[in-house]
Amino acid sequence: MSTAPTLLSVERLSKSYGGVHAVRGVSFELKGGEILALIGPNGAGKSTCFDMLNGQTRSSSGRIKLLGQDTTGRKPREVWRLGVGRTFQITATFPTMTVRENVQVALLSFRRQLFNVWASTPRFAEVEAGHLLELVAMGGYAERPCGELAYGDLKRLELAIALANEPKLLLMDEPTAGMAPRERIELMRLTARIAREKSIGVLFTEHDMDVVFEHADRILVLNRGTLIAEGSPEQVRRNPEVRAIYLGEGLVYDARHREGASA
């Protein structure tokens, strides 16, 4: 993995809102196929970081480079076109369409066919949409109304949509929030498999330490807008500062993590 090229490089990224420094001088790199977790207390600046990476929020200073290209200050749809897929903490899908149509819309947009009045959407790129759904094990749900899906299935659909633009980088904001523990593990395994196969870099935020410690290759710890630690799961878990600020005594996750690992 160390030989893979740098996919994303963030240099001294900062954001302040009216005098409040939400993010201060955050720098890190991410390689293709690598899974990087961003953790920290609520309000540490994780979401702000995410929003800056995908263009939802403008940074106050600093640079974001995707495959050598400067994307600082680009709009979300421009960043998306450069190959960044995103899933949201609260799933964002199109509830009045079928599962397949959800993916088809993303494909239409990727192929710049949105103003094509003559095409019929329900028949557009059916095969490719089907492949994407197969990839996230949703092939059997293609014709279902998206509004009827269970929460875990919605998360997988969101992943399929996020993969429609053949992304090089996936940004996942609390991908497993609100899911049952087993579903969490399945979703993260799926994500990891796709990331390795397609050499996609994944950056995710997460509060469930079991997911983080099990699936992240590397972890960044953010506190009050500053990176306070970076390293392998083991290094981060042992870091006394991270324990004091964030992880605590391990009463509410450690044991569970061990169980999950042995299961």
């Binding site: 949201f88 199109f94 509830p95 819309v105 993303a106 103003f115 009045v117």
Partner: peptide
Amino acid sequence: LVFSPFGFALRANRDSPLRSEAVGI
């Protein structure tokens, strides 16, 4: 128009502006 890509893009934006922006619409 409703069933053309344009109609779907319009509906996508109505359903979830966040998601539609995130897929380049």
